[in-house]
Design a protein around this nucleic acid. Structure first.
Lengths: 336, 336
DNA sequence: CTGTTAGCGCGTTCAA
DNA sequence: TTGAACGCGCTAACAG
């Protein structure tokens, strides 16, 4: 190797080698303004020869804009978030943006700290989950004068743009579905709902609607901790031990419900003859079961995509806080 | 509001309000050097009053270091990657670093483009998947003089540090397990292996070992496309249609294998009496099945954690390319 | 314990 | 179609 090429080839080096000014080289790098083809070639050759890599820090500092987008999600383990992340990631890469990711573990204080440190990168936009944040989180976001998308939930007033569906309504719709099927002794198996506000909202909708219909939800078992297939499985066992008379069980989400299906299988229980099972989320896995899971599905990947499309690609006039309801559908399935 | 507070409170503003120099304010922000408690308080008060948010772009540019770490993964949908991302994310946040994420869809050219754009942020380190990259990717990484971790695979020479296990050996170990159980008419159901080099390596190990044992792997079905529970389910159906005499089927991973289990359930097939089923990865879901899946497990979350610990927290002397083998274990399960 | 000086590597704004 | 001058907001390296 004739040159160690260790570190720090700058635009100035490239410009010098190409025999042009820095700004011209800069324009070539960014496809900006009119450049003679010959000049462009000289610069590109110099880039190749030096192995120049743009310094985004300097560029963004000078231009006061970056192509970073802050993304804050509650959890890595809950299967729905990899899916929305997939939607976000794909849409972002199409438009040349890059996600800087943080995970809150459902803790508002952690979220606040994350917002603060992500804002330090002067992101073009910020995507966060849910509509409940600390006062300081909201203040920082409002002050930053960047686009903000709050995803998953629409049951409250967003800072800028909310994309998702009403979890309250989802709970109600589940209840109506089960009532229509003739179920009356309804049970519920859930994970830790103090943290997962959206699962809690679905439960509230379920409880409200069932109460109004005169079939109150009295049979419940909460496992505590994050949702998982294992906890769904053990949770159903625990619920039935206490309330053997349930005719259907609703789970806080599909992971839990799949666990419930496995419990029923292991016990040789007839589903849905002896016991109906109902999930929430429409995960791939539930639909691949021998009997596809009855559940409620929203397109989570699409939520991520829409968030990106609206806040990083859109530059229409600001019209104040907006809400996009992507809706949900009851998947009849074969278990309830 | 007495002040729009829209945009751009700088360190200079804070310093002025606190009656100190910029560098002192800077030191307070970063907990650097000795500061009198009183001075620190004045600064912190000014920070609170102004709502100052540090500009990481300027800071990193000046100090030539950032707390960003580039993370490049092949896929969002393959369930193993959310798990390693969980390990990476947790370990990073503990040490105050933030991941900038890119997804290659198993394409080396996409990976190269990602490396180039992530390098623009002068990350403290870079984590990528596998040991196969384009020549230019390797060059950029070597030139960048940052720590590089290549995760998942150790069957080749790493740029700096490799963390994972030998997929070739994993395939061989699976073969030995099945042979020891007495299986001889072994089938295989896989997804698209052109892209997923590690699944391909496991298959090669499997084929080699079976060949050496005189029970060559002749019964195969490849579905094409990414792995999924659905494809595993349909794939097993297709394989058995062609080769009804299989006594055990190995799947390219656990998602596929769980699909296989569901197919067997739906057909009322006796597992493992009539047909054994064997996966790879040890996903939670496989272990929650009525009969826990027989599979091969590596601790993927730990791989992510170790990668971070070694390349961002470690500053021991460089000793050239290193390999960390986290190993794997055969999970006997109840399906093979 | 605190301050001064001097950039970091780019892009913006003008002018040519 | 190209360039010169300036500054983005912060921190390193000294001094004091």
């Amino acid at each position: 190797m004739k040159r160690p090429a260790t570190h720090g080839v700058t635009l100035a080096d490239v410009a010098r080698m190409a025999g042009v000014s820095e700004i011209t080289a800069s324009r070539v790098m960014r496809d900006r303004g009119p450049i003679r083809a010959e000049t462009r070639d000289k610069v590109l050759r110099a880039v190749a020869a030096t192995g120049y890599v743009r310094n985004g820090l300097a560029g963004s500092l000078a231009s006061a804009r970056s192509n970073l987008v802050g993304v804050i999600l509650p959890s890595h383990t809950n299967n729905v978030f990899p899916e929305v992340m997939a939607g976000i990631g794909q849409a972002l890469s199409r438009s040349g943006y890059q996600p800087v990711v943080g995970v809150t573990d459902y803790d508002p204080a952690t979220e606040e700290a994350l917002v603060r440190s992500l804002l330090a990168w002067k992101p073009a936009a910020m995507i966060l989950t849910g509509l409940e944040h600390t006062r300081e989180t909201r203040r920082m976001l409002e002050t930053a004068s960047i686009r903000v998308a709050e995803i998953m939930d629409i049951d409250n007033r967003p800072i800028d743009l909310a994309i998702g569906f009403s979890h309250l309504e989802a709970g109600r719709a589940s209840a109506r579905h089960l009532l229509a099927r003739g179920y009356r002794r309804i049970g519920y198996v859930g994970h830790d709902l103090d943290a997962d506000l959206r699962a809690a909202a679905r439960l509230k909708g379920l409880v409200d609607q069932l109460g109004e219909a005169g079939a109150p939800l009295e049979r419940r078992h909460l496992t505590g901790g994050a949702s998982s297939v294992q906890r769904g499985r053990s949770g159903l066992g625990a619920l039935l031990a206490q309330h053997p008379d349930c005719d259907v069980v609703v789970f806080s989400n599909d992971d839990m419900a799949v666990g419930g299906v496995f419990h029923a299988m292991a016990e040789g229980m007839d589903v849905p003859g002896r016991l109906g099972l109902f999930g929430c989320n429409g995960l791939d896995i539930g639909q691949a079961l021998p009997k596809p899971l009855s559940t409620l599905r929203a397109n989570r990947q699409r939520i991520g995509e829409i968030a990106v499309e609206r806040i990083v690609m859109d530059d229409g006039p600001e019209t104040g806080p907006a809400i996009i309801d992507v809706g949900f559908e009851i998947v009849a399935g074969a278990t309830a």
